[in-house]
Simulated assay, not measured.
Amino acid sequence: MEIKFKDYIIHTQLPSSIEVGKKYIINTINPHSYCIAEEDDEFKSALTSSDILIPDGVGIVWATRFMYGAKIRKISGYDLHMHFLNLLDKEKGKVFYLGSTGSTLTKIQNRLQREFPNIDFYSFSPPFKPVLDKEDNQLIHKIINDIKPNILFVGMTAPKQEKWVHQNKSFLDVDVICSIGAVFDFYSGNIKRPGKFWIDLGLEWFPRLIQEPRRLWKRTFVSSPKFLMHLLISKFSASS
């Protein structure tokens, strides 16, 4: 199922299989990324050109109901990650993690081998730069294409990761590319993901804000009010 939200086509379901030979770019959208994209044309282009764009934020879920009366459910980046790991384990495929530090990638590998023993794990920690240069990208392309993974998970934080995928997707021999940011830290155990109680209440953001106030204050106290104001203006201007 798809629903149009402003300039975005949001998908409410994930694919039930991995179609070999057809490349899918999967991104997530939440109120914070929406607000960033409104001021960053390249980021917006990366999101709008996604083959699958999922609502990773209860704010998007509420907004679609408020604007269009549509009832959708949140699909988090973590849900996306686990969905494809389960598919890949059944198919005995290959996964590649691009991003984060060597120590985090090792933690991911150790957990992956315990939980999904049929998946072949590969990874690379790129240089920590605002923008990767041509030589960096050529090396990354070669490493990934030599392996030809079924799934590429990119964790460089938004909007850097989405822009990187948008710029480099045509050079990558991969079936599915997902930008999943903080999931690297959740799955590795670096950061504890809020429990089911908070998730079911639609308040997963609250414990995360307590855990990481310096990183997340802006999306809570700046982007969320800005997103709400944008919705109100759009709703009432359309009805007037």
Rank of each mutant, 00 (worst) to 15 (best):
E19W: 06
G77E: 08
S170I: 14
L232E: 15
T48L: 08
L209E: 01
R111A: 05
T220G: 06
K148D: 05
I60S: 01
S224H: 13
Y187P: 01
S240Y: 12
E19D: 13
K148V: 06
F116T: 00
R219Y: 07
F221D: 10
V58W: 11
M82D: 11
H11G: 07
I52S: 01
E39G: 04
R193D: 13
K23L: 14
L47I: 06
T104I: 06
L228I: 14
G59K: 04
N110S: 07
E38W: 04
L87F: 05
I177M: 12
I54H: 03
D185L: 03
Y68S: 11
K22T: 15
I140A: 02
L139N: 03
L53D: 09
L112G: 03
K44Q: 13
D51S: 13
S234K: 13
K192R: 15
G77N: 10
D56Y: 01
V174R: 00
R214C: 09
K4E: 15
P149F: 02
G77T: 01
S50M: 07
I191D: 09
Q211G: 03
Q113L: 14
F227W: 08
S224E: 15
I9P: 00
G189A: 06
D40Y: 02
Y8G: 02
I29R: 00
F128M: 15
W217L: 04
Q109P: 07
Y34R: 08
Q211N: 13
G21V: 06
P130E: 14
D200P: 00
S17C: 09
T220V: 14
